[in-house]
Amino acid sequence: MRNFLIAGNWKMNCGISATTELLNGIKEITTSLPKGVDGLVCPPSISLHAAANVLQGIEGLSLGAQNVHFEDNGAYTGEISTQMLNEIGCEYVILGHSERREYFGETDKIVNAKVLKSLDDDLKIVICVGESLKERKADEHKLRVRKQIQAALTAVEEKDAAKVVIAYEPIWAIGTGETATPDQAQEMHKMIRSVLEGVFSQKKAEKIRILYGGSMKPHNAEELLQQPDVDGGLIGGASLKADSFTEIIDIADQLSS
Rank of each mutant, 00 (worst) to 15 (best):
K109R: 06
I88S: 02
N86D: 04
R146W: 04
S118T: 03
G89W: 15
A75K: 08
V111L: 05
L55T: 09
E106V: 08
D72N: 14
D121Y: 06
I94V: 13
G64Q: 05
K147H: 07
S62W: 13
D122W: 09
L85H: 15
R146L: 00
Y76R: 08
E79H: 10
K137A: 07
N67C: 02
K109L: 02
V115T: 14
G96L: 07
K124T: 03
H97D: 03
E106W: 13
R100I: 00
V145S: 01
T77S: 07
E87V: 08
G57H: 06
C90K: 06
H141R: 11
E102F: 13
N86Y: 07
D121K: 15
L95C: 10
G74H: 13
Q56Y: 14
V93A: 07
I125H: 01
K124Q: 08
G74C: 03
L123Q: 06
Y92N: 05
G96H: 08
N67T: 08
S62T: 03
I88W: 14
K109T: 06
I125R: 06
S132H: 08
F70Y: 15
K137T: 10
V115H: 07
L63F: 11
Y103W: 14
S132F: 09
A138Q: 15
Y92Q: 02
G74W: 03
R144E: 02
L119A: 09
L55W: 10
V126F: 07
K109G: 00
K114R: 15
H69R: 02
A113K: 15
D121L: 13
I110P: 01
V68Y: 08
K147N: 13
R146K: 12
D72Y: 12
G64K: 04
K117C: 07
E135P: 05
H69I: 01
I94E: 04
L61I: 11
R136Y: 11
C90S: 05
L116V: 10
I125Y: 05
E135C: 05
G57L: 00
V68D: 02
K117F: 09
I88Y: 09
G96W: 12
N86I: 02
T107G: 03
K124Y: 13
E79P: 10
E106M: 08
I88C: 09
G105K: 14
F104T: 04
E91S: 15
G89M: 05
C128K: 01
L133R: 12
L55S: 03
K142Y: 12
E59K: 14
I125G: 00
A138F: 10
R136C: 05
Y92W: 15
V111G: 06
L133K: 12
E79F: 12
I58W: 08
D120P: 00
L123W: 11
G78F: 11
E131H: 14
